[in-house]
Design a protein around this nucleic acid. Sequence first.
DNA 1: CGCTGTGTTGACAGGTCTCAATATAAGTGG
DNA 2: CCACTTATATTGAGACCTGTCAACACAGCG
Lengths: 240, 240
Amino acid sequence: MQILDLDAADHAWFEEACGFRLQFDKQMVIREQGEEVKSIYLLASGWVSSSIILPDGERQIVGLHLPGDLLGVPSTVLASSAESLTALTAVEAYRISMADFFSFFKRQPRLAVAVFLQDQQDDLALIDRLTAVARLSATHRMIAFLLHIHDRLARIRSGPVVSFELPLTQVDLADALGITHVHLNRVIKDLKAAGLIDYARNRVTLKDLARLRTFSSLPSGPHPLNVFKPRWLRSADNHD
Amino acid sequence: MQILDLDAADHAWFEEACGFRLQFDKQMVIREQGEEVKSIYLLASGWVSSSIILPDGERQIVGLHLPGDLLGVPSTVLASSAESLTALTAVEAYRISMADFFSFFKRQPRLAVAVFLQDQQDDLALIDRLTAVARLSATHRMIAFLLHIHDRLARIRSGPVVSFELPLTQVDLADALGITHVHLNRVIKDLKAAGLIDYARNRVTLKDLARLRTFSSLPSGPHPLNVFKPRWLRSADNHD
DNA sequence: CGCTGTGTTGACAGGTCTCAATATAAGTGG
DNA sequence: CCACTTATATTGAGACCTGTCAACACAGCG
């Protein structure tokens, strides 16, 4: 929700609608694939993955969510959820009922726009990942993935991020990158040997950001966000 | 826009905002990657692809658009477009300026919701494709792709669709599936030999829909859409 | 009629998967 | 705190799918 710089009144409205805060332990499923879609969630703290289980039992992780993200939005069109939402760490989240969610569009257009724009960012991340999975080697996918996470953390936190916790097992990572965990392990070994990263006990250090960006060969670094906004979107008290 | 059953008043409002209709010849670029984002488009007729060019010149087709779809939505958060929009056939489209687009949220919440839900459908398509590209063999990807197109056409047209035009070259298809066109060609040959499809001069015939669905091994057929909607969304004259 | 885009086929190389075994870390109950 | 069990990580050998390179057929089009 960093896009629109919502003011205090917006936040108050939002929090009120969100109701009380839910807690989830690590590994808990927040909403399972196939489950009825009754609400979405706003992630307050922790990491969450959205994943899809294929009929043969294979799993594809299609999204990673950090604090501030909305969870389960794509399935708002569906009767039953397309993805499973799983807590990768201990998680705090607000539940937002579908009725409340839709009411934003009617009563709080600025909020609706904020949600919409946030959603477009998720969309872009997905597009980038599809491109990476479809076109890059396992090594370059891994690099692109780490850089993506790095950039998102850098936007949330203040100051540069050289080292960060990545609460995913190598199996999880492989399921996100679309490779086997066996092969991923070799990739990690190579990246460490090349002096590009450190990786131990879920802690990642990007040792040469510049060179990594060269290798990622994705269309860009982080996408520069649009600054244009209609006047009425910029502040709540301009009710033209 | 089939989700909300917009009424005549909604449509009138929409068309007015859209302004006049633009024409694009086959192969024309509607909006190029990197170009400033000043508007989005509503596709009236024809097929459009959105694609991303990687630094090494490779191209990934990240989306296909049929009449009724909104084009270029993900880039609404960006200063410059992340994807190129290319006309695969002769195309008619309405341009919607960003200002008009955002004004929907303020003045026409039902329209905003419709746009939002349409966008979620695109999102789900993207999720499914990521899953397919990451987890399925080239053959199964092709099957999943054809079934996806089939299902979308079936929803637009009335009655069953067994055979349809696919205005994509094999190079295009390969760029969408994340394989080489050389390999795709072999895949097509195999599918024809297996009696599963016919494929000639851009016309595709799905000869055994049931068996194809078995092979696709994607989480589902077409996602069943949600029927729940708050009262105020169901019709325009209920202004609670 | 030549040109360019598209489709088709072959031989070979290489990245990634599969299967399998072992090591290491983490978690559990006594 | 130790013994035990389970999850996670690591490494090897071989098979297979897909990519690369290259040549050629075919169609549309000026």
